[in-house]
Amino acid sequence: MATPLLSVRDLTVSFDDFVAVDGVSFDVHRGQTLAVVGESGSGKSVTALSIMRLVELGTRAKIERGEILFDAGGQLGADAAQSGGLVDLVKQDEATMRQIRGNRISMIFQEPLTSLNPVYTVGNQVAEAVMLHQGLDKKAATNRALEMFELVRIPEAKRRLGQYPHEMSGGMRQRVMIAMALSCDPTVLIADEPTTALDVTIQAQILGLMRELQEESEAAVIIITHDMGVVAEVADDVVVMNRSKVVEQGSVYEIFENPREDYTKALLAAVPRLGSMAGTSEPARFDLVDSTVDVTVDVTVGANGSDGGGSGGNGEGV
């Protein structure tokens, strides 16, 4: 198999005494979608924020060990050149990360309203990203923003450029976030629960859009989600996380059809599947796997770990 575009090796992140991500390793390839799935507090968002190197900003998080090898295509100077194009994101300084973040690797968050600045028009915000990373002037950047709005199929794109976030629906705002994230042609797109806040018909639109855009751009997508339905719908490969660790990883077919670990089995048993009740008329209990599998989460850990890290990262935006 070709060398991975992004390779996370033994990543370990802690918040003071609490280890939020513990020895996590996985690879992401060009044109592939990797789903990182897990329940609250499993460490999936902290993993995503670590790749962006956003996790340490404004929090007490620390990347304790591990590598995040990214194939930057030789565009990042001497360090990249001597390692055959591969750079370890963990070792990069903030100035280098700023060239990568939002440019080569970009991110979409769950709640588009808190990820957009309420006092600037959405067109302005997309143009700003392009001006910053691609060095375009205002006019060219605005044209690029319009082109991106059309790409993500925002109706009446030209008029929408001049709107403020509060004037748009949740689905349209998430399209703006995707437009912004893709505006600099990133090679990796990280989407952290991108459709969780959306209604189901809008979710279907956004997932379809992401899939189509990926086919066109050959970007790698890492989707962070708690929803096994979304995983089945979009993923090529799956990483299952629980309690800071990877419990199982494999192709989407291996995970759904032949899960090896008890936790994965328990998780799948709890998922309601549309159509599973066909031919019956009465309600039916879930046939849950033995409760010896510990799927509960320590609340204090959830609050300090994943949620704290998540909100710290959200403020930084793309």
């Binding site: 199929r153 925002i154 109706p155 629906s169 689905g171 349209m172 209604d199 018909t201 809008i202 979710q203 279907a204 639109q205 997932l207 379809g208 859009l209 189509e212 929803d227 096994m228 339905g229 979304v230 995983v231 089945a232 719908e233 993923a235 989407v252 077919y253 759904f256 799948l268 998922v271 599947r273 549309l274 159509g275």
Partner: peptide, 18 residues
């Protein structure tokens, strides 16, 4: 979305708000 990768559906790319 159905939690079964073999039930993956191709949907027309709709755009529209509720």
């Amino acid at each position: 979305p159905i939690a079964d990768p073999r039930a993956r559906r191709e949907r027309p790319l709709l755009v529209g708000d509720i």
